[in-house]
């Protein structure tokens, strides 16, 4: 697993609330953080569009992974939405052309699990910013920092 992350280095991980405000955002390089803020922010449009599609079949409803949202020259942006409309966005460097859907899905599953643990904290108020060390650790692992 660790190897996969190493190859698929995420440069930005974001959690977006159901009101589309950021609940958590972490970038590999804090100096260019704003650029990623913009990128994640604009993908909300696409996520919303994907979630809004009315003609989803039953199997589609259960599919939380939204796939590739946006592909830029240097980055690929993937999305994932929980059933409670919490969105996860991961920006991967597209230098690695060997990106496979399954690997990205694994990242999101891990992120979802970490998120679920974070909000299970009885002191967490739904809708607040996520401030959890364990969640931080999980995100950093995804980003390959540790």
């Amino acid at each position: 697993m660790i190897l996969i992350y190493y190859y698929m280095m995420a440069v930005c991980v974001a959690v977006i609330g159901k009101d589309n405000s950021p609940k958590y955002i972490k970038c590999l390089d804090e100096n260019t953080a704003l650029q990623f803020h913009y990128k994640v922010h604009t993908t909300i449009d696409i996520i919303e569009e994907k979630l809004n599609v009315g003609n989803k079949t039953a199997s589609d409803v259960r599919e939380l992974f939204l796939g590739l949202l946006f592909s830029a020259e240097d980055h690929k942006i993937f999305g994932y939405a929980t059933n409670t409309k919490i969105k996860f966005v991961v920006i991967l460097q597209s230098t690695n052309t060997l990106l496979r859907d399954n690997e990205v899905r694994t990242i999101f599953k891990k992120l979802h699990a970490a998120y679920a643990n974070a909000v299970c904290n009885p002191f967490y108020v739904p809708g607040d910013q996520i401030k959890s060390k364990l969640f931080d650790l999980a995100v950093m692992e995804i980003m390959g920092i540790i």
Binding site: G17, D19, N20, S21, P22, I25, A33, L34, H37, Y38, H41, G127
Partner: peptide, 21 residues
């Protein structure tokens, strides 16, 4: 960017839009 120039319409807790942007 969900930025209304009327401060009255901006929620005080800032949970509207992306503050950094």
């Amino acid at each position: 960017f969900k930025l209304s120039l009327d401060p009255v319409e901006m929620p005080s807790d800032g949970q509207r839009g992306w503050p950094a942007i």
